[in-house]
Design a protein around this nucleic acid. Sequence first.
DNA 1: ATGTTTGAGGTGGCTTTGAAGGCC
DNA 2: CGGCCTTCTTTGCCACCTCAAACA
Length: 925
Amino acid sequence: MPRRVSQRKKQTSTSENEMGGTHNSEETLTDISCQAVGKLLRRANKGGKSKKKMMPEFELERNGTQVLEPIPQPKTSEIGHCSRDSMGNASAEEKCGNASSDQGYLDNKEELNDSDWEDGTVAKDDRPVTVEFDVTPDSVVKKQSRRATAEDKDLAELVHKVHLLCLLARGRLVDSACDDPLIQASLLSLLPAHLVQLSNVTKLTSKALHPLVLWLHDNFHARGTNAETPERFALTSALESHEGSAEEIAALSVALFRALNLTARFVSILDVASVKPYQSCRPDASGSRKGIFNTSTPMISKRKPDFKSPQKSVSSNERDEVCESSLGRSRKSRKRSATSHMALSGDPSVAEDLNVSVAKSQTSETQDNDPESCVTDKSNKSKRKGDVEFEMQLQMALSATAVGCPGSTMESGANADEASFSCPSKRVKRVENADASTSSKVISTAVGSTKVGSPLYWAEVYCSEENLTGKWVHIDAVNMIIDGEDKVESMVAACKASLRYVVAFAGQGAKDVTRRYCMKWYKIASQRVSSTWWDSVLAPLRDLESGATGGVVQLKTNQSISAESNMGGSFVPSRSSLEDIELETRALTEPLPSNQQAYKSHPLYAIEKWLTKYQVLHPRGPILGFCSGHPVYPRICVQTVKTKERWLREALQVKANEHPVKEIKHAIKPLKVQDFEADDYVCSDSKGNVKLYGMWQLEPLNLPHAVNGIVPKNERGQVDVWSEKCLPPGTVHLRFPRAFSVAKRLEIDYAPAMVGFEFKNGRSFPVYDGIVVCAEFKDILLEAYAEEDERRQAEEKRRDEAQALSRWYQLLSSVITRQRLNNRYNNNSLSSEMPTDIQCKNENESNAAVCSDNGKNQSPKHHQVDKSGADLDTTLSTPVKDTSLSTPVKDHVHVFLKEYETFDEVTSLLTKRCECGFSVQVEEL
DNA sequence: ATGTTTGAGGTGGCTTTGAAGGCC
DNA sequence: CGGCCTTCTTTGCCACCTCAAACA
């Protein structure tokens, strides 16, 4: 395979390894999230060190603070990244990515130990940890945009998944806080007596909830940042002050509903980092550019328990607007950001606007023309949008993870009240900032990106008297909306926000209820992670959720369903299964999109215009409607067509008398020879059409059966083994090496097994693996192969041993010769230059061994048989050389002729002689 | 002003059945 | 000399994606 492909595979497998199996144990979900982030960082780190210059790098500081530090990015363009730039990224007192700090980080980088990340110390370290980003200004002019590579896509998907897991974990924490008995009791104590009666209502309708929601709405307000208290998820303080974040208010509403024995869920939009690279979290790929910056993750835009708010916020005056809850959140964010800029701008109001702009540009994927953002865009424009997004995504994932990591201590006793994530085991990990302002600034860059007015949290209450079978009713206490599930999408869309994941939490579990709120699924389908992965993650959580909320539905007596359930007694629909049906129904009854492009990858509908080359409509109907004059067909009518050969790989063959359903032109690559012969080229064009067949034209592959031990082969004398199904009946595929030689020796008919292709040199070549033989020969072959293998191994062993002996002999012989020469010419300077290479072939194996003693003209003038040589003979019992020579001849090659040999039967010594007088004694083994 | 269509341009993925030369 | 093994080299088309201009 090409290198490109193998790299891709590696990445994919990495990603799967890292993310896979996260659903196995719900109780370790948080751990898994943390580990995933750790791995992610490690990977990002690696990526950053590679040639991918766009990838930010990260490092681990020694003082227990993990600092995530993108290296200075080259500029995308132009001008002035002055103070504004640092405003966008960091306030002055924070670790601004200036040159000196960069240098320091780069130095430290050498000490970074990957295994720290690998081992998940990010999450598990007992010490308080600060996770912080520092965005450094770009300094080098760079290409404006870059297309996403496969690696970028993998990384974006990884970030997306990690972020999802983190947000899921957070949702579960909020949900469990809603179960806190103290919170519930406190709420009940505040509740007017007439409303408490609601707990006795058995037949609940959404209308009945109205006064309750009204009371909530009147008594609890979403607010902006309170400068005195750190922004944490603290239901108690929200309860006390009757004021809290949108998330807290929504959670309080859920807690109240549960206190009244209503079945209620906490619902949250998981506003997650984009699954695509260099995109912010926006729902709609077409247009709405300016809405991008409005997106952010609630984990960041909302002040989390893990980040202190060290800076004062500007007071809020705009409390009672529409979408107040989110406004509160966004205001908070804006203020927080603004404060970090005030030091630079000096004007709070300006600073606020600026900050919004900065944040926008940071989260934005475009340097859009939004007038509001252009003020500061100049500075951020220089940063590539992909980088910005990447930083954002990592921030999101990291901060979200930090919230959920268990096992760490609360930062202070004052904060460790019961209300914030009630039970100790569920307590929020406080990530202690060594430098609070640093961290806050880091977050502020993200915070400003809040979408204005987009509802992110609400409650769902199960009303048994709604519909026939009961219904989950959407209740947004902050905005005083009851049963407004159809309004959510438009509200979210109006705020340019994303509705990709709507998850309901209950009983420590979670369920994806996006379908209930999203009417235009095709718009978000591509923005979601693969359903396989998502479903597997949610599977254990779904069980928990349905366990907590899934009461048996009390069907109304006059309904036929009721009769059915009474009759059988076995079919008792649970709330959960009924909801599944409801959501599934919505999935299958989506209205026809009004724009053509939506049909390109629509799961339900298709128009012919957007079919690909290998797709046809079969059958052509029914027509469900029209879009811009194009008939709309059900997606199930779209069939994939393939060539005969392609179908063959799937063990299917085209039926007799079937005509190709489609023919496409296949540009045959003209060979170089054909370039000179235009006539040939033109002729070949006519047969360049590729015939395609559909699934309905196929039948199971009917290969000729093996007869008389002969393997049926194709026109190339081989068998294409795409899979076991492609084997002719009566044959087997033997994949061991050198099988063919065994088969050949036994004279068994075989065919090489072609298992695929390798692409090399611009062409593809078949890859063979083993042979195909008739099944009856399998055992014989295996047996013979085992024998052969044994014999071969024995032979190899023998050869190795002989070689070892030979080499020992050569070595010792050299040593002895050297010693002998030393003795003889001790005083001669030659001794130090003695050649040691005595080359001699294995005399045992040749009748006329050839030796060379032309040792670089330095051969001793006179050789004598030395006693030591005889000793060596007896000691080694190996071929021995006796150098009883008399006439050294320069460059002479000894030739030992058979007729000069003498053999001493007593000593078993064979003496070979050269015509020159040189003789060699060989001891026969 | 906003949304939609269209086309340009770029990237990733799929395509798919040798030859020469050295060694044993 | 024949069989086996290694090395040679890195296409070109199409689908898909993004972007921007034109259009509704």
